[in-house]
Design a protein around this nucleic acid. Structure first.
Length: 894
RNA sequence: GGGCCGGUGGUCUAGCGGUGAGGACGCCGCGCUUACAACGCGGAGAUCGGCGGUUCGAAUCCGUCCCGGCCCA
């Protein structure tokens, strides 16, 4: 029978578009200003315009929306700020790649033309990202949409830079940095990806400068850097080189004289124990050189593309890139008989995250942020529990990094990004650092100013996001009302890039923590266990998934069954399961509507059941209570999967499979009108409240279904969250119902064992194991009989003999008998299996009891329980043996 | 080189000192029983990565090894 309102089939697409439009129309997600209730606010981690969203983003967005919707329903003033990130270098790399495919070199475009290309890219991707995000039905306040390079963000970024500069926390200096020779820019430590790679270790002979025989054997994987050598170093305790120290050797191929020095940093076990020192090309060498001020000052041997250059490089090698130079050098060394050996060698190599080029350590002038002073208050706050990290175990990782924090190289030699807000004076040479671009030098007044050529690391604007997105540095209403924010939900991989730095900037610029809880979501993996990424192209396009299955199915599949807190695979089967669940919910409400009489008022609270109310009603309310409590606890702990699991189990198995099947008898009126009214009220209450609890997870379908039921108010999205403890807890009812359901299951087992044809309703008997069970079963005998499809079902007295010609099963609650059909294969086999299982258990239990240590040391109640268990097992085995006695079965068979 | 996380039926997972180790997907059998075959009912399938230890008692705690994954240098 079809409902007057709901179509038979659940078709998500039209319904989702409808409710998204309705939420927009009613401004359901517009945060109130001023808020009149407690605040729940947070920023969406702004996705990079580098690409489009993957299912991984949808996972994070779903977790956030679950929180947002739940808190909004609780009546809190909820603000969720959307935005996108310009993602400087990352975006420029993508634009460069696209142009290269069209045969255009990014570097050859004028800056204006190049930036126009970037702008075009940004527009396209931003549009797509917004479309994807909207399609997910996430309850963002789009009226507060921001971009990390909009004018307000530019101002925020410049303000932050100037403040840190004035406080001496930003400096410019010549330092060794990670240089990406492909992109020709410095990058930060975090942007370097280390991995083990195969290489060749060369042994090169440096001959004595005085013409003495032999020389020193130096091991290196980078022979092309010999031109930058200023010394050969050995360990001070290395006996092999006692005579060599202080002598001079000739650098191969260029024949420069360099000394042999000692330094404790040299590993005597590496190669032959002698290390060549190239201070401009290796951080360790640089440290060693700094300890030996008498060494010659090294000259740069690579240009910004890592091609050999400069006066120390002999002419034939100039202009060669690293790889070509290495080959040429090795060849020349062989010719000069200076190559002593080579062998395969596996070592750690750092590559640029963006270009995959091997990072070249290089001394250059860059802008840095002093991090240690910024980190200190953050570490204190997290240790004090003022900011909590979830799941907790990431604290360890967090502290390790924070406590060993290095200065942050924030300048980049690329086009796309926030300009470094500095002008250099051509007259006095000093920098003018200011929020508004200056017209004259603040030191000498000269108007001869040259802008700093660099732009800022993209994270230098994002680390301000929780407050800059609310208007900082202006004293906006949003900033006053919604900052500090409540929570931050993001992927673990940007813990250092973003999360830690936001905490630092928050304390520095606003004097307070930017959020109280950090929630890390797991990584979404593909079926092969690889991370879903744009690069691999292994994420389905979210819009396709939404078109095919609906946003609700996608959202539910991302949260259930795999925990959102753990890395885990996403498989299409999960989408099917989610869709099936929503169909189940849909049909459950369709069923309920049939049993909601016209004019029924909206649900106000839990139906008041008296003690005489049927067991199923008391049971389902108690089960609902349990589920609702679990949902609240799980969401408070930022574990949406636990909440979804509780709801899935409750709605499908308790409510739809059990309660509805039992309550049908009352709902159809076969037990009279009063019983019918109680059943209707209970069903409506539990269904309605389930929709509310499910709404944060699957907002569209629940909104649709809620409107089909009697309701008050415009939207479920802004309806009240079910009050804690609203439904009565009734543990006794749960225990009693367990007995009933177990009896049904046993009888169904017997039917299956005996291959009773489905339409048949054979007579059956139950002999309860005790008076309490007997009482429960007596009250529910009609339900048991109906669900097990047996007719009639009789209860036997404790001493009554087994009925003739029956198959039987033994359970905790008693024994079941079922009339055998004419052609019975018998249940003896099942009984025998059951006996074996129980016997094994009994043996284990008995041996535990026989252990004197157990009796002496285990808590008394555990011993008691174990004894009780042994008794129960003995009893059940005895009863099975009774059934299996040859005379008994012969008697039955006759 | 240092550190972290994980290894539970075919797959994904819950449990984290006393259970008969739950669930979901898949599989097998029976059913279109008037909300739902995108479904219902029932069933099979795991010595909880290996070894050693602590304990009356270990999937659960400790040690060690193996295998995945990640982070830092």
């Amino acid at each position: 029978m079809s409902s007057p309102i709901l179509p038979t089939r659940f078709e998500p697409s039209a319904l989702e578009a409808k409710w998204q439009a309705e939420w927009d129309r009613l401004a359901a997600f517009r945060a109130p200003s001023p808020p009149t209730t407690p605040v729940f606010s947070f920023v969406l981690p702004p996705p990079n315009v580098t690409g489009v969203l993957t299912l991984g983003h949808m996972l994070g967005d779903t977790v956030q929306d679950v929180l947002a919707r739940c808190h909004r329903m609780r009546g809190e003033a909820t603000l969720w700020v959307p935005g996108v990130d310009h993602a400087g270098l990352a975006t420029q790399v993508e634009v460069r790649r696209r142009l290269a495919k069209e045969g255009v070199r990014f570097e050859e475009l004028s800056p204006e033309a190049a930036l126009a290309e970037v702008a075009r890219w940004k527009e396209e991707h931003e549009r797509r990202i917004v479309e994807q995000t909207r399609a997910g039905g996430f309850s963002l306040d789009w009226s507060r949409y921001r971009y990390t390079m909009d004018p307000a963000s530019v101002r925020a970024t410049r303000t932050a830079f100037v403040a840190l500069y004035r406080d001496g926390l930003i400096y410019r200096g010549e330092r060794m940095v990670n240089w990406d020779p492909r992109l020709r820019t410095a990058i930060s430590d975090l942007e370097v990806q280390h991995s083990e790679e195969d290489a060749t270790l060369y042994s090169v002979r440096y001959v004595w400068a005085d013409g003495g025989l032999g020389g020193i054997e130096v091991a290196t994987v980078r022979p092309e850097t010999i031109f930058g050598d200023v010394a050969v170093a050995v360990h001070p305790d290395d006996e092999r080189y006692r005579e060599a120290v202080g002598r001079f050797v000739l650098v191969p191929l260029c024949h420069r004289r360099v000394p042999v020095i000692v330094d404790p940093a040299v590993d005597p076990a590496f190669g032959a124990g002698a290390l060549k020192i190239t201070p401009r090309n290796d951080p360790v060498d640089r440290e060693i050189a700094e300890r030996h001020p008498d060494l010659a000052t090294a000259v740069e041997i690579f240009d910004d593309s890592a091609r050999l250059t400069g006066e120390w490089v002999p002419t034939p090698y100039r202009g060669l890139d690293r790889d070509a130079a290495r080959a040429r050098v090795v060849e020349a060394l062989e010719q000069d008989d200076l190559l002593v050996g080579r062998r395969a060698y596996r070592h750690s190599v750092g590559r640029s995250e963006r270009s995959d080029a091997i990072v070249e350590p290089r001394v250059s002038t860059q802008w840095f942020v002093r991090m240690a002073p910024l980190a200190a208050p953050v570490v204190t706050a997290v240790r004090a529990g003022e900011i909590r990290i979830h799941p907790e175990r990431w604290n360890l990782t967090f502290f390790r990094w924070m406590e060993g924090i290095q200065d942050w190289c924030i300048s980049r030699q690329v086009l796309w990004g926030h300009r470094v807000p500095v002008e250099h004076c051509r007259t006095c040479g000093r920098p003018t650092v200011s929020i508004e671009p200056p017209t004259r030098c603040e030191h000498c007044g000269s108007t001869e100013l040259t802008p700093d050529p660099d732009v800022l690391d993209t994270w230098f604007s994002s680390w301000l996001w929780p407050f800059s997105a609310l208007g900082w540095p202006e004293k906006t209403a949003d900033l006053a009302q919604y900052y500090p924010t409540t929570v931050l939900v993001t992927a673990r991989e940007i813990m250092f890039f973003w999360v830690a730095r936001m905490m630092m900037s928050g304390f520095r610029f606003t004097g307070t923590k930017p959020f109280s809880d950090v929630v890390f979501t797991g990584l979404l993996l593909d079926a092969q266990g690889r991370k879903m990424s744009k690069h691999l192209g292994n994420s389905p396009e979210p819009l396709d998934v939404i078109r095919e299955r609906g946003a609700d199915a996608l959202r539910f599949a991302l949260v259930y069954p795999n925990p959102t807190t753990e890395d885990g695979p996403f498989r299409p089967a999960t989408l099917d399961a989610a869709r099936n669940f929503l169909t189940k919910l849909w049909n459950l409400v369709r069923f309920s509507l049939v049993h909601v009489p016209p004019g029924t008022p909206p649900v106000e609270g839990a139906p008041a059941l008296d003690g005489a109310a049927a067991l199923e009603h008391r049971w389902i309310l108690s089960r609902y209570r349990r589920a609702a409590d679990e949902v609240d606890a799980a969401l408070a702990a930022f574990e949406p999967t636990r909440a979804a699991t509780a709801l899935h189990h409750f709605v499908w198995h308790d409510l739809a499979d059990r309660y509805v099947e039992i309550a049908k008898e009352s709902l159809t009126g076969r037990r009279g009108d009063p019983a019918r009214r109680v059943a209707q009220a209970t069903l409506l209450y539990v269904v309605e409240r389930s929709l509310r609890l499910l709404h944060p997870f699957v907002p569209h379908v629940t909104e649709e279904l809620w409107h089909a039921l009697p309701h008050r108010g415009e939207l479920l999205a802004t309806a009240a969250w079910p009050a804690a403890g609203e439904a009565p807890s009734d543990p006794a009812a749960e225990v009693e119902m367990e007995t009933v359901l177990e009896a049904v299951r046993l009888l169904r087992n017997l039917r299956a064992d005996e291959q009773v044809p489905a339409p048949d309703t054979p007579p059956a008997w139950i002999r309860p194991s005790g008076p309490e069970v007997a009482e429960v079963l007596r009250a529910e005998v009609a339900t048991v009989a109906r669900l097990a499809r047996v007719e009639p079902l009789q209860l036997l007295a404790a001493d009554a003999p087994a009925p003739p010609g029956v198959a039987s099963r033994v359970a905790v609650f008693g024994e079941c008998y079922l009339t055998r059909p004419a052609t019975s294969p018998g249940a003896a086999e099942a009984l025998e299996r059951e006996r074996e299982k129980l016997k094994g258990l009994l043996d284990r239990t008995r041996s535990r009891l026989a252990d004197s240590g157990f009796r002496a040391r285990a808590p008394p109640e555990v011993v008691r329980e174990t004894e009780e268990k042994a008794r129960e097992l003995e009893e059940r085995i005895r009863r099975i043996d009774d059934h299996m006695r040859p005379d008994a079965s012969e008697a039955s068979a006759s």
